[in-house]
Nucleic acid binder design. Structure first.
Lengths: 335, 335
DNA sequence: TAGTATTATGTAAGCGCTTTCATTTATAGC
DNA sequence: GCTATAAATGAAAGCGCTTACATAATACTA
């Protein structure tokens, strides 16, 4: 692989000049620039980005930590982030945190030691305090899908409480009064927030969540089917169930069918996230849209703006969920 | 951030010694090693991986190029790869190729300029020749889900032809004789191979694929629903349809339902890939298992073995698909 | 045309490590 | 105690760039 030195020799100029034409910020005469460009072309020169990083102490790489690499949710998110950075000539280094504190901290460490210019963190298990401490170190970061008041300026988040509220309100508006709830792991903020929204909607109707109709799931399909079975086993009547995400809703749908129930005839189901496959379940899942791809883009743009100083970029930090009514919710039977 | 120099000063040794204890291959006396370790600890020293890379000309990073970052298939694949490398202390740089030639070549370029020690490529649009040329350059790479005869030793692939054969054989064994086919984009090798398997199975029954019952889709849900509509519109009777992947099968299932058909009562449907959600469709999708996660692991291990010389690792290069019978395929009505 | 302000280019000192080679120190043999 | 050998450590030259700073070339002014 050719080095900058060989280019400079061929072009008959100094190293510095070659470097200048690469980072075409400084003025170089048109003639010289062309000579250099020609030499680069001829040698098939490509800059060694490691050397560039070392010399300039910017690595042009951004570390991304997500809980998982698979799953519709994270996939969308990563796509949004990658697209934005790729266009800007930056690259992403990705690690998975698996929603475990140790793994997440480890991942952050790993990314930091890779000299990332910035980090985009989708972390669930580390404490707020850990993040606050981290914010005092040199590597800037932005939090996706998390609200830490002390770090508000670096949070890109969805109003999960509102989403939970919207879901339950929808059910309520359709006449449902006995509503089951299959939650996410309650140690996760978003799971809690969604549930709080649920409670708020309920309280507007002078209702309260029924403990017997509450199940704490795991945000995965199996959690949804297990949850539905528990709800059914409770013996308590219900005409609707809200699932804290689409994957659990999908599991619940499948379980319902297996147990001989029909949705929405026997009871309605609503999900959360509006992941891609929600449209392909049967019945089509009513859900709350989570603009995760847009939020991924936004996190990337935050970095572009704050870290790479592309000041013209606008960043939206708080996103709002909205209802996507489809076929899994119907009016409550009037009894 | 502390540098190696500060560590060496604090420990009262030379740079070289500190470097040695980091790469603990060379012999350093126990006493010195402890002094250095203590100094590192005290300074919170962490090596600058960029500098390490420049000096050692290994970057400890592996470039991954996939078609998309989202979707159940790629998600699984990335998870497999990341897990393997993370454990080995390597990191992955990920780019998306979007199944377009220019974007893929661009992505490869991008990754190479990032000084990756190796590349794992899931490319569909670049030519075999391009890859052969690439193999002559210095960056080693392994191909996932692609068979290039001249590069056989760096291909990790599935026998797609066999998979296609298994799917159709299953249908045939259930008595189906009129079988529709919703293919992937036929310029993609895997789509073609699967179709060839389909033809082979058919020929064993002295049957041939019916052009009127063939639709070239796009491997996505919409392609499946469009495909099914075309099949239905053709006026040709059929009792089963094979979809070249699960996403199209899911789309076909949804479309069938919307048009008033029942699967598998009116016709059977079989997919391909066995992605996570195939179990949650209605009816549960019969499909062909594609061990993509295992293959992702294997691609990573190929790199560990070939590039990082971890010779104890075993690598399996060709994987076999197998049938997962579920509920979307039933026996053909005996007429 | 000398004098000054601009612009273009070159020189050279790092960036924080690895690694070769030379040197010092410890170990052993006689 | 003195050499021969091995083990531990240090000195220093890069890796391929960026970036002050210095200098040379050109343009502009009076």
């Amino acid at each position: 692989m050719a080095t900058i030195y060989q280019v400079s020799e061929l072009a008959g100029v100094s190293l510095a000049t070659v470097s200048r034409v690469m980072n075409n910020n400084v003025r170089v005469s048109e003639a010289t620039r062309n000579k250099v460009l020609a030499a680069m072309e001829q040698l098939g020169y490509r800059p060694n980005s490691i050397a560039q990083s070392l010399a300039s102490s910017r690595s042009n790489s951004i570390g991304i930590l997500v809980s998982e690499l698979h799953g519709p949710f994270y996939g969308e998110m990563l796509t949004g982030i990658e697209a934005e950075f790729r266009a800007a000539g930056k690259h992403v280094i990705i690690a998975a945190g698996h929603s475990e504190r140790a793994t997440e901290e480890d991942g952050i460490d790993f990314l930091r030691s890779r000299n990332c210019d910035a980090l985009i963190l989708h972390v669930e298990a580390v404490s707020d305090q850990f993040l606050i401490d981290l914010s005092k170190k040199e590597t800037p970061f932005v939090l996706l899908n998390r609200q830490v008041p002390a770090l508000a300026d670096r949070c890109i988040s969805l109003d999960n409480e509102l989403g939970g509220y919207l879901a339950t309100s929808h059910l309520l508006a359709q006449g449902h009064r006995h509503i089951g709830y299959i939650a996410g792991p309650m140690w996760k903020t978003d799971a809690r927030d969604r549930f709080h929204g649920h409670q708020r909607a309920l309280s507007e109707y002078q209702l309260a969540a029924d403990d017997a109709l509450f199940f704490e799931g795991d945000f995965r399909e199996t959690g949804g089917s297990k949850g539905l079975q528990m709800l059914l086993a409770s013996g308590r009547p219900f005409s609707a169930v809200v699932c804290a995400n689409d994957e659990m809703a999908s599991g619940a749908l499948t379980a319902a069918r297996e147990l001989g129930y029909e949705v929405p005839a026997d009871f309605s189901v609503i999900g959360f996230d509006n992941v891609n496959f929600a449209y392909y379940t049967y019945p089509k899942l009513s859900t709350i849209d989570y603009p995760i791809s847009a939020m991924g883009h936004m996190a990337a743009r935050w970095v572009l703006k704050q870290v790479y100083k592309q000041s013209s970029i606008d960043v939206q930090q708080v996103f709002n969920p909205y209802l996507i009514p489809r076929d899994s919710v119907a009016e409550a039977a009037t009894t």
